[in-house]
Simulated scan of single mutants.
Amino acid sequence: MRTVSDEVSVRLYHLDSEGGATTTLFYGTLTEALRRAEQEPEEIQDGLFLQTSNDVVAYLDFIEG
């Protein structure tokens, strides 16, 4: 993901690996989205993605650096 500030607006969503359906969990700042994502169970975290206006990154890739 390109360099972003903690206050950038993001969409946090879950991508179902079996059916391919996406479910939006949260719209807000990156800080708030990361807090929300860390509260999800591990099996859900595996399918979480953060989307800005010009980029998408898997949540686990983002937090692992």
Rank of each mutant, 00 (worst) to 15 (best):
V57L: 12
L60D: 06
V10A: 00
D16I: 09
E40N: 04
T29I: 10
E43A: 10
Q45L: 01
Y27T: 09
F26H: 10
E43N: 12
D55N: 10
L34F: 09
Q39A: 10
E64L: 07
G28K: 03
L25A: 03
R11T: 15
A33H: 03
E40Q: 10
R35A: 12
E42H: 06
V10Y: 03
L34V: 13
E38K: 10
E18G: 13
G20I: 00
L48H: 03
R2Y: 09
D61P: 07
R11N: 07
T3G: 15
V8T: 09
F49V: 05
Q39S: 08
L25G: 03
V56I: 14
T22L: 03
R35Q: 14
V10C: 01
D55C: 11
E32H: 13
G28M: 08
T23S: 03
Q51E: 14
A37C: 08
Q51M: 06
R11W: 06
T31A: 12
D61A: 12
R36N: 04
E42C: 00
P41L: 04
R35V: 11
Q39P: 08
D55H: 12
V10E: 00
Q45M: 00
R2F: 10
V57Q: 08
F62K: 00
A33I: 07
L15E: 02
E64K: 10
Y13K: 01
V56F: 06
F26R: 05
V57H: 05
Y13T: 05
R2S: 09
D16Q: 08
N54G: 12
R11H: 06
M1Q: 07
T23N: 02
L50H: 02
Y27M: 10
Q39M: 07
S17T: 15
D46N: 05
G47Y: 08
T22N: 07
G28I: 05
D55Q: 12
H14A: 13
M1T: 08
E32R: 12
A37Q: 01
L15M: 11
V57W: 05
V8I: 15
Y59E: 03
E7R: 11
D46H: 11
T3I: 14
T23A: 06
T24I: 12
H14L: 13
D16V: 08
T52R: 04
I44D: 01
Q39K: 14
L30A: 08
I63K: 05
F26Y: 15
E64N: 09
A58D: 02
E18Q: 14
V10P: 02
T24P: 08
G20E: 04
T24S: 14
A58S: 10
L48M: 09
D6M: 14
L30H: 07
Q51F: 00
L15Q: 06
D61G: 01
G28V: 06
S17A: 15
S9V: 13
V10L: 01
P41M: 03
V57G: 00
L12N: 02
T52Q: 04
T3P: 07
L30I: 09
S5F: 11
E7Q: 15
L48F: 02
T29R: 10
Y13M: 01
Q45R: 11
T52N: 04
A58C: 04
R2E: 13
Q51A: 07
F49R: 09
D6A: 12
A21P: 00
R11A: 05
A58R: 14
I44E: 00
I63D: 00
R36H: 14
L60P: 01
S53D: 15
P41V: 06
D46I: 11
N54P: 00
T24A: 13
